[in-house]
């Protein structure tokens, strides 16, 4: 039945919006560096929920934060968070999750395609994040990339690798 699955997907998408919000607080210590899980949940939202509901979950997360409800790390942020140096990464999640969902819906669901989808999604996040970082801080492109992209690549690569087994195991639980 259509409405049944719609309510279920709505609950899942809200859950992922909350997971993305929680992901900014949850960190796994790798060596001495804690790595936050936020974009892992963005990847999973795209892979598990598809482009439409993945987009909903990120949009709800951003909207909830934008109007000042407490979902952003570091207290109430609201609009100021988007205008700040890291706002581009947050907005970049929107096209990224759609792209990941679109690629994984329109290709065979093999790990290689999923990895490609997540790499494409990450590139979109970096593109938005770094260009906004450059605009806000007036750094040169080179410096903006050194500060806003390179340090995150190893962590993101690990998260992409972890997302594959997680997505496979959860496929059966997420009822569409």
């Amino acid at each position: 039945m259509k409405s049944t699955s719609q309510i279920r997907m709505m609950a899942y998408a809200s859950l992922f919006a909350a997971l993305i919000a929680a992901g900014a607080f949850l960190a796994i210590p790798i060596g001495v560096v804690p790595i936050v899980l936020q974009n892992l949940f963005v990847f999973l939202a795209g892979l598990l929920l598809g482009k439409r509901w993945g987009l909903w979950s990120v949009a709800i997360y951003l909207l909830t934060g934008a109007v000042g409800l407490p979902v952003f790390a570091g207290g109430a942020g609201g609009i100021a968070r988007f205008a700040g140096p890291t706002g581009g990464y947050l907005l970049g999640y929107l096209p990224a999750v759609w792209l990941i969902g679109w690629i994984s819906e329109n290709t065979r669901k093999t790990p290689s395609f999923q990895v490609a989808a997540m790499i494409a999604g990450s590139l979109v996040v970096y593109a938005c994040g770094v260009s906004w970082l450059k605009t806000v801080t007036h750094m040169s492109w080179h410096k903006a990339i050194v500060a806003g992209c390179y340090p995150f690549i190893p962590g993101d690569a690990l998260k992409i690798a972890a997302a594959i087994p997680i997505a496979r195991a959860l496929k059966g639980i997420v009822r569409k």
Partner: peptide, 29 residues
């Protein structure tokens, strides 16, 4: 192994919360 850590941490968290979302969807319906 960081991938092991990510997977072992996220899996129970996701399974458990997805179940809650499932129950919530049923309750809403």
């Amino acid at each position: 192994n960081p991938i092991y850590r990510f997977t072992k941490f996220s899996m129970p968290l996701l399974c458990r919360t997805l179940e809650t979302a499932d129950r919530l969807a049923d309750a809403m319906e």
